[in-house]
């Protein structure tokens, strides 16, 4: 195996670890008291591993070479630029506590390298991108948070109606909330498996690209998927517990019925997107779903935090594109 290919695999594996470390899916389980942190982290890690193993293929193949135009020859330097820019932006964002989407970073990076490729080869830039595929991905990005928002409103409406009949006294309220704890647990399982599949695809997309280009033998595909899944699980168990604990304790006084609507909506949309192969941002969907359910209860989200989050989402794409373009250009000059 080529040294460059080996470096690429290592970078993809490191990226998987980073993705797992930033996974906050189990936070709701902890904040609603369904599971203790240590069990939630272990459970989440196993589910993410299963998601990577069984649900990553469709999304992974979309994120890989298929985003580039047919004229572009997808090479190792391009992959390295994508991996480095995504990992770098992930680290910077994590350091400044700004939540970003790994998927947005990866696709932004693909834009960056395609731009450099067009300049370097003197080709038309519009030929460097598979616009149909990119359009599908963009529609997924726009539609998924909107669906998350609307789904949460509907779910909240149903839950509120249900709670009206079940809130005759504090004991009854607590019994209903305990019942909701188990339902949350079921939806979080769907969400964690789906996110394991959807998010790990960002790392696996590169590996699928290498397999398609013949740099990696088809035989070791499953082994690599297992390694990526294992790293995803390790990231979640070793570092992810901090994110989960942080979010889980921040929302410490949340009632299970408060987070159930958002959880139902987010988990179903992420699951659907993963099964149909759309790379979506789990964080964006979950946050829009939380806003939807909060609006339904007459709560306005904190404007300052919301503005900060949205601006970071808009920044991710151009920053990742610029970073990957700079890294790819540097690699071209170095070699």
């Amino acid at each position: 195996m080529d040294l460059v290919v080996l470096i690429l695999i290592i970078l993809a594996v490191v990226l998987a670890f980073g993705i797992g470390a930033n996974d906050e899916t189990m936070a709701n389980v902890v904040s609603s008291g369904s599971l203790k942190l240590k069990y939630a982290v272990l459970f989440g890690g196993v589910l993410a591993f299963l998601g990577c193993l069984f649900l990553s293929a469709n999304v992974g193949k979309t994120i890989g070479k298929s985003l580039l135009g047919s004229e572009v020859s997808y090479n190792s330097f391009m992959m390295m630029a994508i991996l480095l820019s995504t990992s770098f932006w992930l680290i910077i964002s994590s350091k400044t506590s700004v939540p970003i989407s790994t998927t947005h970073s990866v696709v932004g990076s693909v834009f960056g390298i395609s731009f450099v490729w067009a300049i370097a080869t003197g080709q038309n830039y519009f030929l460097s991108i598979n616009w149909i595929k990119m359009g599908e991905v963009a529609i997924g990005w726009v539609l998924s948070p909107i669906l998350g928002f609307c789904g949460a409103i509907i779910a909240q409406l149903i839950i509120t109606r249900f709670m009206k009949y079940r809130s005759s006294g504090l004991i009854q309220v607590e019994k209903t909330e305990k019942f909701f704890q188990y339902i949350i647990l079921a939806f979080v399982c769907i969400n964690q498996i789906s996110r394991g599949g959807n998010d790990s695809a960002n790392a696996l997309g590169i590996i699928y690209g290498l397999i398609k280009s013949g740099d990696i033998a088809q035989d070791i595909e499953v082994i690599l998927i297992i390694i990526v899944g294992f790293m995803l699980m390790a990231g979640l168990i070793i570092i992810g517990k901090n994110v989960i604990e942080n979010i889980g304790t921040t929302a410490g006084k949340m009632r299970p019925s408060d987070s159930l609507a958002a959880e139902i909506s987010a988990s179903l949309i992420i699951f659907g997107a993963t099964v149909f192969g759309f790379p979506v941002s789990g964080s964006h969907i979950l946050i829009f779903a939380l806003i939807g359910s909060a609006r339904m209860k007459g709560i306005t989200p904190d404007k300052k935090s919301f503005r900060r989050m949205v601006s970071s989402w808009f920044l991710t794409f151009p920053v990742a594109a610029i970073l990957s373009a700079v890294i790819y250009t540097s690699l071209l000059f170095l070699v």
């Binding site: 008291g33 309220v173 607590e174 909330e177 006084k253 009632r255 299970p256």
Partner: peptide, 9 residues
């Protein structure tokens, strides 16, 4: 025996 949200109450 109690849920986190109702403990303060």
């Amino acid at each position: 025996e109690t849920l986190v949200f109702s403990r303060p109450d």
